[in-house]
Design a protein around this nucleic acid. Sequence first.
DNA 1: CCCTGCAAAATGTGATATCATTTTCGAGGA
DNA 2: TCCTCGAAAATGATATCACATTTTGCAGGG
Lengths: 231, 231
Amino acid sequence: MTTTDIPELPRDDGMTTQEHAYYRLRNAIMLGALRPGTALTIRGLAQQLDLSPTPIREAVRRLSSENAIEVLGNRRLKIPDMTLGRFEELVQLRIALELHAAERAFPYLSEIVIEHLRALDDRMDGAIAARDLDALTRMNQEFHKILYRLNPYQAVMPLIESLWLQLGPFQRQVIETVKMVDVVDRHKEMLAAMGTRDVIALCAAIESDIRDGSVTAGRLLLRKAGDARPF
Amino acid sequence: MTTTDIPELPRDDGMTTQEHAYYRLRNAIMLGALRPGTALTIRGLAQQLDLSPTPIREAVRRLSSENAIEVLGNRRLKIPDMTLGRFEELVQLRIALELHAAERAFPYLSEIVIEHLRALDDRMDGAIAARDLDALTRMNQEFHKILYRLNPYQAVMPLIESLWLQLGPFQRQVIETVKMVDVVDRHKEMLAAMGTRDVIALCAAIESDIRDGSVTAGRLLLRKAGDARPF
DNA sequence: CCCTGCAAAATGTGATATCATTTTCGAGGA
DNA sequence: TCCTCGAAAATGATATCACATTTTGCAGGG
């Protein structure tokens, strides 16, 4: 068994063991701590997180339902492989869903929220200066999430997060390759569009934001072996 | 405990107990056998399905990750309530996702597939004549699924199915109220559009198909108590 | 008739044990 | 050196059990 480190995560009071395991695994996947193709075992994870297999299996099943973990026929688990075709599919889906979410959140935009997002963006500049990839990823997602969740009738966020979860394992390798400067510029564009209440410009900025990370990613996947061979 | 009947479902060979429980519950929810607001208990379900609580818990967790079952803070489970706001949100999401899926599946359309869909549509006419709601629902979903899954890089189907799952408990009441004639007409429109390879018309037909079921549904929800009170 | 409080029953959770499969790995042969 | 095969180890699945918490139902008081 490869001893992939699952980052620790504080356990809130009243939190179920299974819940804790779920969020810890989820966090690890989102941040790219588990690479595509990584094989997992329930007992191995149980040992790593120092829990019994039962809550681990439940956490794993939840993640498998979100397509973050693949359950193979022979009852073994792995982080899904990334292929060029799947990657493009996921990116297109992100665009479709996140633009939809932004449009429906737009009427709920307030000056207070925009100010909040501005502050978050400033902190992201700090994370960039500090080369803190994990914090940057987390805040980037938080930025989008705050916007999308303005719409009080929430059904879209879980779907978007499933996509983030599926892209997570691969994202790490992308970010490590890139200079990571573009991301934040797009957020500045998004903020400007929000300031002038320009929904078209906002959507355009979001689409660019999503695409930015994808260009080099696609190049990475192509450099490997087209579509057949997993990454 | 209300003894809500969970419809039986054949258990394929090599199928895990947990998997069987998952599909059986999923099927029950999709077909609307469990109404919104229904309270569930793990032990109760275990007794009903004649299993131990362990595989039930895993199945329930999977469904909770797909937002088909709500896990309340006090550790109790229920089928989520339906409100007008949530319903409209889910319908809008269906439209956004299914049009996206149809567009991306379109290039893979072949005459054989269209013929297959035509045959399925004929069988749906039979189900309508026989007033078999369950079969109709199943075949209706199958119809859409066959189309969307033509695109070989599948990531969208699980998201769409999560939406179907969330609409399922409410759908039953809608269908029981309506004369159920429109649905199939839309499928004929879809088939016509496929025949002439007209993607615009196909998308329009799909959108109408999705909306059709929603009009009366929205009216049902309004007749109740606006948005605050659950259905 | 309605509210309050308390004891009994029921529930979710998580650890453990057992069983059937699957994987691992090294010995022996080509 | 490479392949085959079989035994040992590891693994996933599931039932069961113990425990803490919650719900339920009823008795007693207002």
